[in-house]
């Protein structure tokens, strides 16, 4: 296991006692992309801060590539790459120099650091902007430079804390493909997010955490199955005569969780099964099917199911 988090807790003792992390156990395998999902204040960022040597845990251990991050933080940092929530690029250095000096910090020689920086500029399509200062970069470009910098010293684990917060959709897509690209290099990625779509499409496995605890852990598909996320079929029909009988028939099917008549047709909630769609279309044909939309099960439903609908601050 490349990342081992065991019985991790972090309690902030002040006027108000806050249990930010309450006994988290996680293990990441080499090369996987792991999503840490949770509402604001769930303990995601605290967990990452501890793993990246920036916060001391109250109890428990974190090992990165076998190195205990509390006992040997400086040593552990060689295995860690971090893309923080905020743009922390060095404002006094150009894009190229940000990469170059980062490499120097990690002991690269001049020639080696130079070659690695140029290689990264090319890989992340930043070559044209190599002499630009970070203040002149857009949010998306800045994020790309941050990812390039974070992997410059070839860490074993890359931590991405809310990588797409504040990015426009295009930049977010570009960021996703950059992260996907890391898979080829064998880097293990731990990302936190509250964009369900992001976690769903990027992660091999996800953990949903809330109140500092892991509520569910597994592949996105497995979580959707386990926590009853349903495929929703919305059918628009010309005629509604005799619809009630059809609803009753559908409800009786084992693969259908629920069915109801709507203002302009019929809605069916089902666990995803191949046999249902042809039957539904055939059934609906009698009522004059005009349109059909299918919403695949999403992590969002799982997430809401586990963490509730209450608004978090």
């Amino acid at each position: 296991m490349i990342v081992e988090i065991q019985h991790l807790t972090k309690i902030y003792e002040s006027k108000l006692r806050v249990v930010a992390v309450d006994g988290i156990d996680l293990e990441l395998e080499q090369g996987e992309i792991f999503g840490l999902l949770g509402p604001n204040g769930a303990g995601k960022t605290t967990t990452i801060s501890i793993a990246t040597t920036r916060t001391l845990p109250t109890s428990g251990t974190v090992r990165i590539a076998g190195v205990d991050v509390v006992r040997h933080p400086a040593h552990a940092r060689r295995h860690i790459g971090v893309v923080p929530q905020f743009n922390t690029l060095d404002r006094s250095l150009t894009v190229y120099e940000n990469l170059y000096y980062h490499c120097r910090y990690f002991g690269f020689s001049h020639g080696h650091a130079r070659a690695r920086s140029l290689e990264l500029l090319e890989q992340f399509l930043l070559t044209e902007r190599k002499d630009v200062y970070p203040a002149q970069l857009s949010g998306g470009l800045g994020q790309r430079v941050q990812i390039a910098r974070a992997i410059a010293h070839r860490p074993t684990v890359l931590f991405l804390d809310e990588p797409s917060a504040g990015l426009d959709p295009q930049s977010r897509m570009a960021m996703w493909s950059a992260v996907e690209g890391l898979r080829k290099e064998g880097i293990t990625v731990l990302l936190t997010t509250h964009y369900m779509e992001e976690a769903d499409s990027l992660s091999d496995r996800v953990a949903i955490i809330d109140h500092g605890r892991v509520l569910a852990l597994g592949t996105p598909e497995k979580l959707k199955q386990t926590y009853g996320a349903e495929t929703v079929f919305d059918l628009k029909l010309k005629s509604r005569e005799g619809l009630e009988a059809a609803v009753a028939t559908l409800k009786a099917r084992p693969d259908v969780r629920g069915a109801e008549a709507t203002a302009d047709g019929l809605r069916v909630m089902a666990v995803a099964q191949d046999g249902l769609l042809p039957d539904l279309v055939q059934e609906a044909a009698r009522f004059g099917l005009r349109d059909l939309t299918i919403a695949e099960p999403s992590l969002e439903t799982v997430f809401i199911h586990l963490t509730g609908r209450d608004l978090r601050e």
Partner: peptide
């Protein structure tokens, strides 16, 4: 404001 220190704090040497 800038939190630039993060970069240097993550260097492989004691704080």
């Amino acid at each position: 404001i800038t939190r630039e220190i993060d970069d240097r704090v993550m260097c492989p040497l004691p704080l």
